[in-house]
């Protein structure tokens, strides 16, 4: 009880009623703006044909139906390559890329954060610099690399660069810095444990929020991977690509395209809902020291 009272009093510090009201008001206005297109996608996906093409258009649905979803599945079944193949591709790419990224990034992060070898500061600052530009910069030369390696039109062209993404290493290293005490590692080392064993049995369990976050970030990126310049074969294309083909199908597919938008957005949102506290916990150590 005492604890509760303290909490209340700290919250009341420097706060005026007018301020609280305007904070709430602004959050509501912008929240509605943020949510509206998402909600409207769901509404559209539930509209029967006559409500989709109704004037004036309405932002609610009178007779909700799942017709658009069954249309979507019908369209999927008529696609040139079986639709399950697109889904398989996306899952395969997401799982391999995420697994590789989380593993390799964690190994490297542990080495940089906790083993005092020469050069670790330089190696880490390269990672920090690499966060300052996006993949558009490297896209041209990566295309050359891919064709030199013979990886054009293979899964590798998407999976391997995703494994080499610096973001995971950055977040993991920062998290290990703040949440893995050196003393624990030192005593394990004195007991004769190998670095490998320390990493697996001591460090990895301690940084669970961080690798959960890495999994989520990497998975989100790969799950949303659409058309790639490296992939030509229809059999290797991904689920978001196939979905976007349905979306561009024009008037006849307005309902199905809304249904497909709902399906694409649902997976990442559910994943985030389940993992939000872990992600926020990880991000609290994401800061960049200058």
């Amino acid at each position: 009880m005492a604890k509760l009272r303290i909490k209340k009093s700290t919250h009341a510090l420097n706060r005026s009623l007018a301020g609280d009201m305007s904070v709430t008001g602004i959050l509501i206005i912008f929240g509605v703006f943020m949510a509206f297109p998402m909600v409207y996608s769901i509404v559209q996906s539930l509209k029967p044909l006559n409500e989709l093409w109704m004037f004036p258009p309405r932002f609610y649905v009178v007779n909700p139906t799942f017709q658009n979803f069954s249309d979507l599945f019908y369209l999927m079944s008529t696609s040139w390559v079986p639709f399950s193949r697109y889904i398989f591709n996306t899952i395969f790419i997401s799982v391999c890329g995420t697994f590789g990224n989380v593993m390799l990034a964690s190994f490297a992060a542990y080495a940089i954060a906790k083993i005092k070898f020469p050069g670790r500061k330089t190696l880490f600052s390269i990672i920090v610099y690499s966060l300052m530009f996006n993949s558009t910069v490297t896209s041209i030369t990566n295309f050359l690399t891919m064709s030199m390696l013979g990886w054009v039109d293979t899964y590798l062209s998407i999976i391997v660069p995703a494994i080499a993404s610096p973001m995971g290493l950055y977040l993991m290293k920062q998290f290990m810095d703040t949440s893995v005490p050196d003393s624990v590692l030192e005593s394990a080392r004195l007991d004769g444990a190998s670095e490998w064993k320390i990493l697996w049995t001591l460090v990895m369990p301690m940084v669970k929020p961080a690798w959960m976050t890495l999994i989520i970030f990497s998975f989100q990126g790969l799950w949303n991977q659409g058309a790639s310049v490296y992939i030509f074969s229809e059999q290797l294309k991904t689920f978001p690509y196939a979905i976007s083909q349905i979306m561009t199908g024009g008037i006849a597919r307005a309902g199905a395209s809304a249904a497909s938008a709902v399906i694409t957005m649902i997976v990442p949102i559910i994943v985030f809902v389940l993992s939000q506290s872990q992600v926020i916990q990880t991000m609290s150590s994401s800061g960049m020291k200058d």
């Binding site: 297109p37 799950w223 957005m265 949102i269 809902v273």
Partner: peptide, 16 residues
């Protein structure tokens, strides 16, 4: 947080 963050992770839902 979810409401504000959701659009950034929802793939190409911006098509809406």
């Amino acid at each position: 947080t979810l409401v504000f963050y959701a659009p950034s992770i929802s793939g190409n839902v911006y098509i809406i």
